[in-house]
Write a protein that binds this DNA or RNA. Structure first.
Lengths: 208, 208
DNA sequence: CGCAATAGTTACCGACCGGTCACACCTATG
DNA sequence: CATAGGTGTGACCGGTCGGTAACTATTGCG
């Protein structure tokens, strides 16, 4: 609005190689939509506001995404992909040591529990999008299944008894901690997520 | 719409004492709003649709509730009160036997996990209502705190070690199971909610 | 250069949103 | 019978929603 013809505050031209050449409109829209969906909820923000925040316009948004639902799915896929990278970092941090990776998982999840107080984007979307048959649901379920499967494998490698039940339990603890932080606040049950996980892992380890 | 002047399909008059005299408009609105919020989400249904489904009109709705936000709070309080009654049934079912009540809690929660696939209304509202300062948040937090406190007391009476940590763990497991059922489907981690709870309770009981 | 693809702008559409108004209606009670 | 309070009706308000049309400006590339 205030800048009219110049693309940024800079000199309009000759930003050929120094600056990282700001992302293409499509990418700006996706990442901006991620943030705004997170802050205001999927139903709580309009495409117009998303386009403006992404420093573009609604027409461009609709040329890349046929509908708001398409954009929703794309943002969820985007978030999924970022989350998938986490598992490789875990393997790098504790190579070949599954039990250490499991404890690393707990620690990392506890970290994002405090760093990202808005909960899991995918889970929140599942809560918010009630219309069954919405294309986002398959994205959400695929993501959740994949995340859980990685945890199942990890628990199996850690050599504990009933590894699948442990993975189920940890999955529920994490999911519960994230939504519990929204509903009950910081001092609710989620405050003891780490202790709960560690106690659970220990009990499974001893059980065998 | 189709019935115009007659209040119901009946003979317009003389329902003085036989029929249970259908609830007053205010009560119809609250319970109808509960259902519709659950089905479509709080943001997904309009006051007009709620009034119509409650067989009344928007004006009457606004005469009882000053705003949609007021109605939201009232429905959440309504749900809270119904949920509070559950604890008394639990005491009646297993009088004086805290451990039996704890297992009864698990069983009952597992039951509503399958009976009510839409998750916890209060938790869902917390996810959906991002605007901080929304009056619903205190209703939600009060409810969650009260529910959790009852569980803490119960775990304490059951005589397990670290009863508060057990209550935190069970709270997170339940919350996680309910949202996990939405995000991951019936076959996700929530399928083993009972086993996870029982294993957890057992490990806490043995730990001491 | 010249062309084509992409991006930006403005205006517009019909639908629906939460909320209000004035007025007619019904029914219970005095 | 009369009055009053709760209820029903329909129109209306400004605003926003998701989505589209037509046109212009910019850009990258042969």
């Amino acid at each position: 609005m205030t800048q009219k013809n110049s693309k940024r505050g800079s000199e309009v031209k000759s930003e050929t190689d120094c600056q990282p050449t700001r992302p293409a409109p499509r990418d700006r829209i996706v990442s901006t939509a991620c943030d705004l969906f997170r802050q205001h909820g999927i139903r709580g923000i309009g495409v117009d506001a998303i386009a403006e925040a992404a420093e573009t316009n609604k027409m461009t948004l609709y040329r890349h995404f046929g509908s708001k639902d398409d954009l929703i799915c794309e943002t969820l896929r985007f978030t999924s992909q970022k989350a998938a990278a986490f598992w490789e970092e875990l393997e790098i941090a504790h190579p070949g040591n599954a039990m250490a990776q499991l404890h690393g998982w707990v620690k990392a999840r506890a970290q994002c529990l405090t760093d990202e107080p808005y909960g899991c984007d995918l889970a929140n979307a599942a809560v918010e999008l009630k219309e069954q048959g919405h294309p986002a649901h398959v994205v959400i379920e695929n993501f959740k299944t994949a995340q859980h499967q990685r945890l199942v494998v990890l628990c199996g490698q850690a050599g504990v008894g009933q590894s699948e039940l442990l993975a189920d339990t940890l999955s529920m603890l994490l999911e519960g901690a994230r939504v519990s932080r929204l509903a009950s606040g910081t001092d609710g049950p989620s405050a003891h997520f780490v202790r709960a996980c560690e106690a659970t892992i220990a009990s499974f380890g001893n059980a065998r």
